[in-house]
Simulated assay, not measured.
Amino acid sequence: MSDWLPETPRTLAFPTAAYVTLAGADWLASASPHPDEMHTLWATRPSAPSVLPCGTAFDVINAPALFGRRMVDRLWSDGPGSGPVAAHRGRILLFAAPGTAQRLPALLVWEEWATAVPPLLCHGSGDAVTIPPLHPRRSPAADRTAGPGAAADADPAAPSGSRWLVAPDVRKPWLPGPDVLLWACVRAARSMAGPAPEAAAQHPVSLLTAG
């Protein structure tokens, strides 16, 4: 299973969209029971993070920054691509198909590389996540030091970092399911394990905790 990658419709080069389009904002707002209120909030406080419930429009797999970036890199370099991805307070948020938060831990427990996967938080039905502002914000210091036309680029691994790595840009984005993210977890774990023998993972246990 760890070498199998399902066919999916995404084969684009790694995107670098830093802000959410109007269509992407409509999709994010659809996760809320009051989408109009979300649009009002974003219009009045465009530089503030916001909170959205999981389980209807999307689930979220929440990974440590380094491992999460490895997963995203694998998804785009060797795999089908990803759905929206955000960095928030030293974590990587991978937006996934509804149901993934429940199914992924059950799949991973059977993988021999499960012990090499760091603790992940799986946010599904009944959970909520904080998402970055729809548009990146620039600090006054960054405006003074950046050259003409240069954009400030916050470090997504920094504790205070909060920005989109792959911003929502359509009303119905493709979202990876549990099988695709299982593949990404195993590939990321292998890439970080180095030359250590696979025998180090002979007793798989789930390191995922439901959010």
Rank of each mutant, 00 (worst) to 15 (best):
R163N: 05
A196I: 15
L28G: 03
R91C: 12
P173F: 04
P156S: 01
L182S: 10
A154G: 05
D59K: 04
F67E: 08
L175N: 09
D169V: 06
G124K: 01
D59T: 04
A141G: 04
V180N: 04
E7G: 12
V85P: 00
W164T: 10
L93E: 14
A96L: 06
S47L: 03
D26H: 07
G68V: 04
L182R: 14
A23F: 12
S139Q: 08
S160M: 01
V51K: 13
V117R: 10
A167M: 01
D78R: 13
G124F: 08
G83T: 03
H34K: 07
R138S: 13
D155A: 00
A146H: 01
V109M: 10
G177H: 11
A97T: 11
D153N: 01
D59N: 03
P176Y: 08
L208H: 14
H135Y: 01
L182F: 12
P35V: 07
P9M: 07
R187Q: 15
A158Y: 04
T21S: 13
W164M: 04
P6K: 13
P9Y: 06
E7A: 13
V51H: 07
E111S: 15
A87M: 01
E112I: 07
C54F: 05
P173Y: 04
V51L: 11
R187E: 14
A184Q: 00
P46H: 01
N62M: 13
S77L: 10
A196G: 09
C54K: 05
C54V: 05
T145M: 08
A25Y: 00
R190C: 11
A142D: 05
V20Y: 11
A146D: 09
S32Q: 03
G124P: 11
D179C: 07
A188H: 09
G161V: 03
W27Y: 14
W113R: 12
P53F: 03
W4R: 09
A141P: 00
E198R: 14
Y19G: 13
A43M: 02
L182E: 08
D179G: 00
S162K: 12
R45N: 13
H123P: 06
T115M: 15
L181T: 08
G99N: 12
T21M: 02
D143E: 15
L207E: 12
G90T: 03
A193V: 09
L107S: 09
A101V: 02
V166H: 04
A141T: 10
H135V: 04
E7S: 14
A114V: 05
A65Q: 11
L28N: 01
A31F: 02
A188G: 08
H88V: 06
H34W: 00
D155H: 00
M192V: 14
L120A: 06
D179H: 12
A43K: 10
P132K: 00
A142F: 09
P98Y: 02
L134C: 11
A31R: 09
N62S: 15
P168S: 09
S206F: 05
L94G: 09
C54Y: 02
L28T: 07
A146W: 07
G149M: 15
S162C: 13
P140R: 01
V51M: 03
A101W: 11
V205C: 10
P84E: 10
Y19Q: 15
K172Y: 04
T130E: 14
A96R: 08
G90H: 06
T8Q: 11
A167D: 00
A188K: 02
A96F: 13
A128I: 04
T209K: 14
